[in-house]
Design a protein around this nucleic acid. Structure first.
Lengths: 211, 211
DNA sequence: TAGATTGTTAATCGATTAACAATC
DNA sequence: TAGATTGTTAATCGATTAACAATC
């Protein structure tokens, strides 16, 4: 079977959902792979293949109902069932993520945070309580949290990753530039900003040199 | 010629730089593609191909000098020459980025910010002044800034993108989920967090179902 | 109906990995 | 020297795009 659910497929679905939600807000009833393609710069054939994975069937000449297609995409990503997450490291980035309002619509709920700064401990940020880092393992264990957001300085990241994995974490959203070593039953998603920045600057420079 | 400098190549270099810097801090004198490979989960052949693009030559059996390899990588990405950037939208994410200390080592300098909240205007954040959004076009034009970081709510993003492009912006680091329409001589790097989150949650779920 | 759109199979494209000679 | 490592060419792999019959 060649149509496994790859990383790249998973990454496209939030884009479909984003466009479908905005079409829904506008009150549009039907849409087609070709229309989505125009909004997203994704080939229409690819969109059809992706959407087929959700089980929906479109109608030739008409396309898909916006409502049901949106629901199918949300269900495909299981965004209705919020996964509990903890956030480790309440610095600038950690703060921004704790205050982020979009996660509830994207399958994630941050239920607890950890830091080692006494100034921050026992405070609440956007109603999420900050615990001392020493309690991390116990809290993760008791709350059965499976997802961790890692926003500490890079020098601590491997050690903390080891601890959280021991406590039962299965997925780490890694905002540090450190490549983490983890057992194969743990998923790491690197959200490193430097590669993105390098790609942007590099391409702009290429273009400017060429012009 | 098959070895163009692709997006993926550009994205790997910051990882090489990160590891090389930490080897340098540890005082290690030589390294090899195979060693970097172990730290990064990138195939050693790929690393050799990438490094060859910088013009360095390794020594069989010994590898590369850490210092000179690091310099070659930094030069390859032109990270010594800081590109001026403006930041548009001083919300949670904007604030976090304004306070980010790592950009100076990664080729970027944020020189000015914009917002429409009177509370924020004329304040300084990490010594970067916040101007009213109405002045954006003029300031970008006068300072000849070519890179913009877009951290506004998504509903404003296309309009603001149009304006900044008119004023001379060539590269947009887009932190909003909106896919921007831009002329082909403008580069957009999407830093959308939803696709990353979907990939993480999707893979964790896959694993949990399989186990 | 005619034609736009679907869904699928085949072809292409590009990135990654394997194989291997060269070399210090 | 022997063998680890380099750098390059060839093979593989997987994702994207093209082609096309089916259908409302």
């Amino acid at each position: 079977m060649s149509n496994e659910i790859s990383d790249l497929i998973l990454r496209r679905f939030p884009k479909y959902i984003y466009v479908l939600r905005s079409l829904q807000r506008k009150g549009q009833e039907f849409t087609s792979a070709s229309e989505l393609s125009r909004f997203l710069d994704i080939h229409h054939t690819q969109i059809r293949k992706d959407l087929a994975l959700t089980g929906v069937r479109g109608v030739p000449k008409r396309g898909h109902r916006v409502d049901s297609l949106l629901n199918a995409c949300i269900e495909f990503l299981d965004w209705d069932n919020l996964a509990d997450a903890c956030l480790v490291g309440v610095g600038n980035m950690g703060n921004a993520l704790l205050n982020y309002e979009g996660f509830a619509k994207a399958g994630l709920q941050i239920v607890v945070a950890f830091d080692n700064d006494p100034e921050k401990i026992d405070k609440r940020i956007n109603n999420i309580k900050v615990y001392p880092i020493e309690k991390m393992k116990d809290v993760i264990d008791i709350l059965e949290v499976k997802i961790a957001i890692l926003t500490t300085p890079a020098k601590n990241s491997q050690k903390l990753a080891n601890e959280m994995i021991e406590a039962g974490i299965k997925g780490i959203w890694n905002f540090t530039p450190k490549k983490l070593n983890v057992p194969e039953n743990v998923i790491v998603e690197d959200m490193d900003i430097y590669p993105a920045l390098a790609a942007l600057l590099g391409k702009v420079r290429n273009l400017s040199i060429l012009k």
